[in-house]
Design a protein around this nucleic acid. Structure first.
Lengths: 201, 201
DNA sequence: CAGATTACCGAATGTTCGGTCGGCTAACAA
DNA sequence: TTGTTAGCCGACCGAACATTCGGTAATCTG
């Protein structure tokens, strides 16, 4: 239980550690399926104390979604090499997205399950669509460049690509035997070079 | 509004058409986020009338999940060719799973979002795990046969495979320009032969 | 037509929900 | 020790929740 030691007044939860517990609960039972009572129990607090730290349930959701979106968009803005082609850039984005997804797993998981039931959720969905659009552009340029097969529609390619990456939240746990770097490499390899045993291997 | 014409008594909804409307609502707002009032409004019925057709909200969920699971397990039991190798069988399962997913899209979508909050949900999760296990076996045999690359763990391969297939529910709509058969072919091609422009193409 | 059958409804049930409020308590600085 | 700040709690609230129940309405069979 992280505490805000080193500050004035009575020590207790800070927003980040409170958020961590809340997001874990949201992911296990679903946002709508998690009551404030359940959060309070996990925190070892009373329901009313939660409102001392955040304005309400929806703010918890907003904080979590914002954190996930910030991490993902940061990947798009990384420019590894100005001279690199679109294909190399695409591979980089996929590889790094896997790493970010693993590093911010609970927050990204929550983001990917948002359905648009409130203003906060709809804003997050809009941001996600913007992310998808920018990746689709990159795929289109990679296809034009000849680095990605042209017999499959770039938009479809982009959806399959990030469908695979996003599906990681359904099973990947960073504390297992599979390291993040190994996962990212395996995923990039399978997606770009195919499942079939390569002739060169 | 489908009706049970041709039966005795006052005509009205049958269970299937009621289920169809309910599942659509569950997918749009989430199961927990959908109230019986919302269902009643979409059905053009009063809340209480719903209980004439089903025992409650949870039975609706159970019916939907059962339908999705039945359709998916039927694919595993299809034996296209007794002499076919594991690799061909695997490709068949992937291809047909895409078709089933498209045909039963709302029901499979709901299944893939279940979190285990009730006995009904937990039973569905158990069934899903059994499905995953059987696919993983198939991948393992395909790898032993040399039809699938051996430098990636078969269990990981299996997860990436069905992660990609399952991610279709997030965006695919059968009424668009993309036909189911084209989707299944494109997905199988990308996964097995890779995104990169093949030398032979 | 009568009687059976099925579908539906309004009103009310107890429960759980997210959220509020006033007051109490622990730790710091002075 | 005293004042200040921050953290916490029990009791409570109105609204929404899934569900029940007694009764009504529409349709078919004979």
């Amino acid at each position: 239980m992280h505490r805000n030691t080193g500050r004035v007044g009575r020590p207790g939860y800070d927003r980040d550690s409170l958020l961590e517990v809340a997001v874990a609960a949201f992911n296990e039972r679903g946002y709508d399926g998690t009551g404030m009572e359940e959060l309070a129990k996990r925190l070892g607090l009373s329901k009313s104390s939660i409102y001392h730290h955040v304005s309400g349930k929806e703010e918890l959701l907003g904080l979590a979604l914002g954190r996930a979106l910030d991490a993902l968009f940061a990947v798009l803005d990384e420019v590894p090499d100005a001279t690199a082609g679109a294909t190399a850039r695409l591979e980089h984005v996929v590889h790094r997205s896997v790493e970010v997804l693993a590093a911010e797993l609970p927050y990204v998981t929550l983001l990917l399950r948002v359905r648009g039931n409130s203003a906060v959720e709809r804003r997050a969905l809009d941001k996600r669509r913007e992310f998808d659009r920018r990746v689709a552009e990159l795929v289109t340029r990679a296809a034009a460049e000849g680095g990605v097969r042209a017999d499959v529609d770039p938009h479809l390619t982009s959806r399959l690509l990030f469908g695979t990456v996003n599906s990681l939240v359904e099973w990947y746990r960073p504390d297992g035997d599979l390291a993040v770097s190994a996962l990212a490499t395996a995923l990039t390899t399978v997606l770009f070079d195919g499942l079939r045993a390569a002739p060169g291997n």
